[in-house]
């Protein structure tokens, strides 16, 4: 593999993994605090799977550069993380959490479906494996968006607020990272342009069927994964607190 392609692939894998780790963190905040016991279990399921997916992506990166997944998660600083800003946003209410998860899962599912044909076999294999779980997540969150959108006036209003707030942020999922064009040209990853078209088509239809309207002004649209919200520092301060607590610790 040419070095520039390898570097681009490492960057893409890091972005995929970081998205999952940070979103999993936000979802984990619900554990023990969900609206009904059954949903504590459901969201813990999603958070767990996301962490599993992150591990898969970090392991693929490890094959390329030998980096230690735990080292990446627990010893990088905020400016070294490459997740999108959407996943950093506070968990908000149940509407916000479910809508973010739906829009994220939809993107992930579409991306994985195409990534199964990746010319880079380890990535194709990983995509095949992760897609299985992701299909279920999508069914689950899609069902929630529909129910809250069409439920009560209050649930519809909360969903609409969430949509108005996050729509701009979701567009970052389709902003190529530096070197992405090389990976696309090599058939290693899906083209985000085509992906965005399908994502828009599917998501808009489901949102409309759920009684929700796209915001007229999409608001702030983050453009680079080197920029973060003011939340990331605090997320990492918490996430890394135990791992960094004892420099002499070898095994956790």
């Amino acid at each position: 593999m040419r070095n520039e392609i390898k570097q681009a692939l490492i960057a893409r894998l890091t972005a995929l993994a970081d998205d999952e780790v940070i979103l999993s963190h936000r979802n984990s905040e619900w554990t023990g605090h969900a609206p009904i016991l059954e949903e504590d279990i459901a969201l813990a399921n999603i958070a767990q799977d996301e962490l599993g997916h992150a591990s898969v992506w970090y392991s693929l990166r490890k094959e390329l550069d030998g980096s230690d997944p735990d080292g990446l998660v627990f010893f990088r600083d905020a400016d070294e993380f490459r997740n999108c800003e959407l996943v950093e946003l506070p968990r908000g209410d149940w509407a916000f959490t479910m809508l973010r998860q739906f829009l994220f899962d939809l993107n992930e599912t579409l991306w994985l479906q195409q990534a199964r044909d990746s010319s880079y076999q380890p990535l194709a294999d990983a995509a095949n494996k992760i897609l299985r779980e992701e299909r279920f997540h999508l069914q689950h969150t899609q069902a929630w968006v529909e129910r809250l959108g069409l439920g009560t006036e209050e649930s519809n209003r909360r969903m609409q607020n969430a949509l108005d707030f996050m729509w701009g942020y979701t567009q970052q999922l389709f902003v190529p990272i530096p070197g992405e064009d090389l990976l696309v040209a090599e058939g290693i990853v899906p083209d985000l342009g085509g992906l965005k078209t399908r994502w828009l088509e599917y998501s808009i239809q489901h949102l409309q069927n759920s009684g929700l309207k796209l915001p007229i002004n999409p608001g702030y649209q983050p453009a680079s994964r080197t920029h973060h919200t003011e939340h990331l520092w605090s997320i990492l301060a918490e996430m890394q607190s135990t791992a960094r607590w004892d420099a002499a610790a070898r095994v956790w």
Binding site: V21, H25, S28, E29, T31, G32, L37, D40, I41, A44, N45, A47, Q48, L51, G52, A54, S55, Y58, P69, D70, V73, F74, E238, M239, S241, T242, A243, A249, W252
Partner: peptide, 20 residues
């Protein structure tokens, strides 16, 4: 959200999920 490794984090989510 303070677990020191990815593995411990997954185990702990699974465990708390079991408790639910």
């Amino acid at each position: 959200n303070r677990a020191p490794t990815l593995k411990r984090k997954m185990i702990l989510i699974a465990k708390v999920q079991d408790e639910a």
